[in-house]
Design a protein around this nucleic acid. Structure first.
Length: 738
DNA sequence: TCACAGTGACTTTTT
DNA sequence: GTCACTGTGA
């Protein structure tokens, strides 16, 4: 194929095929040289292709050593895809470092563990473990409160804030934040483990403070590429800056319109201000869309154009034709299901497949109606994102035994398994054992061995059994392995000799669960690793960093049920975006930045559709066991009416669909008949003194409206306890009148 | 230490 | 409607 250089217009007949198939913008992005590059890649514009081609181009054409290239993504799936596709063009690319941010952080910390003050065998705590850890440090607070605090601490880490950062008070209103964060950090450092935030923050700190590490690292990585850059947080941005220094070429690819993880710390401004922070950055926009028909892109464009603070892009479809997207204004969820079923069946009649179709929703709870009805109506389906294999109790139990073997200071693991299955070591005994470890400063196993003598009866025997068990497993793990036996049989032995398998077999019989099968699945997964301390450590890290079920995504022919968030990066020939109702999507308390993020989420949802797009909105929605009357989402009102075909339910009488403006009034909450009015809503405001039947006197520190449950009131009580309530549903909380 | 019932809360969630 | 947590009683 003959083509011209996009810049000079000079024909370049000898471009290799992997470059000649790119469009001019893509090609100039691939060949760009200079200080830095920001690629603004609209949905479906081939950004993964550009980034992988660029890696291959640098290696093949520019003589860059693959080892000096670092490419980071946010998901393991994206990292895998990047590795595969780059290697498919140029096999040398597989020597480049292509990882998720967090897996890069773990890789970096293990290589520099001494400098970072960590053992190289650290394991990684997930949010559940974090909560257990904090709860152990402040048992007077409830677990759920600790969970909330842990979330705040994680946000602080996303923001790159330390317990002693001056900015901490500005970012978090809770006056206790600093103290609790410091307490948490101390406790975490004592375990020798790290959390997800540390995987970003600690490498950054190391680069900032350790000159030798900084020099060595900067010498190595000359080219840094970042995918889905709009999802990066402040700490990640900081890490990039430190990695790049003045010398590296940095190329980020992203779409400010697809930034949907603000609530998890993502900072859109990272992309908006990238050119200012990295002076000399060039910008290339990819606006040709290869996925959807223009009729679909226009709808997406209408919606997102209502956001301020955009870099601004207009997607142009390469695919001509296509029909108008359809909006169905329906009576209730049952009609929504029926409508979806009809769309699905029509698609099949027209020669399509079930797997072409995705049904999208804002909240996981919405999948239930579909799950209940689909089997009966003959629609095969699969739910994406629901199976959290590694979050399951039995799997976490087994993982805790493994973590204990890796790191004898792992307090969270110890607490989880020392009495599971039951060995007669109760809460009091566990406290004694942990107290001994804290007092002596030694690891949990050796201090437990000493403290066991002070226990009596069952607790003493149980502790000794536990220690003997761990010791036996430890010996087996590190014993010579000349035949290269895999980790599988070892894990099998672990779940058997610990009694976990028997314990969960009993549970299976009582509750009809699949726990034993899940443990067996875990044994299977372990078979890919060698039986050795290093093998175990590798296995654990892989699991900790990639919680998606590694076993293949079953390619069954089924309709996909999926949250809008989970669709990012995916595409389907036919998309039905459901539940487009004010109060649900967006919620009524969402305004400003949050509202814009919801709009971007809608944009993401729409741009998943290749051929056909359907939107549904229900007049009545059942939520939390109540029935609510709703208005269509305000986002629907932002679409130029001529671009969509609107279908109204025949049944609809009055109000809905009869010329009512979109998204004007929120749900008129109508819990089954009673006309509850929020007459007292104004009484619930921050600063007001309240009294709770159980907790006593307190002060409201925050009030947030909810779509359907009235105001949500956060109260700090004199006891120091903090709790939230829906005044609408509880009679125990009243405002003090003085 | 365990089992049960009553109570309170209730988005999204790459790692 | 459902789940997880809390507190009680055995």
């Amino acid at each position: 194929m003959n083509r011209s250089n996009p810049i000079t217009g000079v024909p370049e007949p000898d471009l290799p095929p992997y470059l000649s198939s790119l469009n001019p913008e893509q090609l100039s992005a691939v060949r760009h040289e200079g200080k830095g590059l920001l690629i603004l890649a609209g949905a479906g514009s081939g950004k993964t292709r550009v980034i992988t081609t660029k890696i291959a181009y640098l290696v093949r054409e520019k003589g860059i050593e693959p080892e000096s290239i670092l490419a980071v993504t946010f998901t393991n799936k994206a990292a895998r895809e990047m590795r595969d596709r780059a290697a498919a063009i140029e096999s040398e690319c597989s020597r480049a470092v292509m990882r998720t941010f967090h897996s890069f952080g773990a890789w970096f910390l293990r290589r520099n563990s001494q400098a970072a003050g960590l053992d190289s065998n650290f394991t990684i705590y997930d949010d559940d473990d974090q909560t257990t850890l904090l709860h152990g440090a402040m048992p007077q607070n409830s677990r759920s409160e600790c969970g909330r605090m842990v979330q705040a601490i994680s946000r602080a880490k996303d923001l790159g804030l330390e317990p002693d950062s001056p900015d901490l008070s500005a970012a978090f209103s809770d006056p206790e934040m600093r103290r609790i964060y410091a307490l948490y950090e101390e406790r975490l450092r004592n375990t020798g483990n790290v959390d997800f935030g540390d995987l970003i923050r600690m490498p950054a700190r190391l680069l900032r403070e350790d000159e030798a590490v900084r020099r060595r690292t900067r010498q190595r990585f000359r080219v840094i590429l970042v995918d889905e850059y709009q999802d990066s947080n402040i700490a990640q941005f900081e890490l990039l800056r430190l990695l790049a220094g003045d010398g590296a070429y940095i190329c980020v690819v992203g779409d400010d319109d697809q930034s949907i993880y603000r609530f998890r710390g993502a900072e859109v401004r990272n992309i908006l201000s990238f050119p200012e922070i990295f002076p000399g950055t060039d910008i290339i926009k990819l606006e040709r869309n290869y996925r959807s028909y223009q009729s679909i892109l226009d709808v997406a464009g209408d919606v997102v154009s209502h956001n301020s603070g955009r870099l601004g892009k207009k997607l142009v479809a390469e695919r001509t034709g296509g029909s108008k997207p359809k909006l169905a204004l329906l009576e209730d969820q049952d009609s929504e299901v029926a409508y979806c079923v009809r769309v699905c069946k029509d698609h099949l009649k027209a020669g399509g497949r079930w797997s072409d179709i995705a049904i999208l929703y804002r909240t996981n709870a919405q999948s239930l109606t579909f799950e209940k009805e689909f089997p009966r109506l003959g629609i095969p389906y699969r739910i994406v994102g629901a199976s959290r294999f590694y979050d399951r109790e039995e799997v976490k139990d087994a993982l805790a035994y493994m973590a204990m073997l890796c790191n004898p200071r792992d307090e969270v693991a110890f607490k989880r398994i020392v009495n599971k299955p039951s060995r007669g070591v109760g809460e009091t005994s566990v406290d004694i054992l942990l107290g001994e470890a804290e007092a002596s400063g030694s690891d949990l196993l050796s201090s437990a061995a000493r403290a066991a003598d002070t226990l009596k009866g069952k607790a003493k025997a149980g502790t000794r059994d536990f220690l003997a068990l761990i010791q036996g497993l430890d010996g087996l793990l590190s014993s010579p392995n000349p035949d290269g036996e895999s980790l599988g049989p070892f894990i099998e032995r672990l779940v058997r000799s610990s009694g976990l398998i028997e314990y969960h077999r009993a549970q299976d019989e009582i509750a009809g669960t699949q726990k034993v099968a899940n443990l067996e699945e875990l044994v299977n997964a372990a078979s890919l690793y060698p039986r050795s301390p290093e093998g175990l450590s590798d296995f654990l890290e892989t699991i900790e960093l990639d919680r998606s079920l590694s076993s293949e995504e079953v390619a069954a022919d089924a309709v996909t049920l999926i949250t809008m968030h989970n669709t990012k990066g995916l595409e389907f020939p036919l998309v039905i975006a459901t539940g487009l109702e004010q109060g649900l999507f967006p919620r009524d308390d969402e305004e400003g930045e949050e509202l814009e993020e919801q709009r971007r989420l809608f944009y993401v949802a729409i741009t998943r559709a290749k051929d056909e797009l359907y939107l549904t909105s229900c007049h009545w929605r059942r939520l939390h066991g109540r029935l609510y009357e709703t208005m269509p989402s305000r986002f629907l009102g932002e679409i130029d009416g001529s671009r969509i075909e609107t279908l109204k339910a025949k049944k609809s009488v009055g109000g809905y669909g009869s010329g009512a403006p979109f998204g004007q009034r929120p749900i008129s909450a109508r819990p089954a008949g009673t006309g509850v009015q929020d007459k007292e809503a104004s009484a619930w405001r921050a600063g007001a003194a309240v009294y709770h039947d159980d907790y006593g006197a307190g002060v409201i520190i925050k009030v947030s409206p909810t779509p359907s449950s009235g105001p949500l009131v956060v109260v700090r009580f004199e006891t120091g306890r903090q709790a939230q309530f829906f005044p609408k549903f509880t009679k125990k909380l009243e405002v003090q009148r003085s």
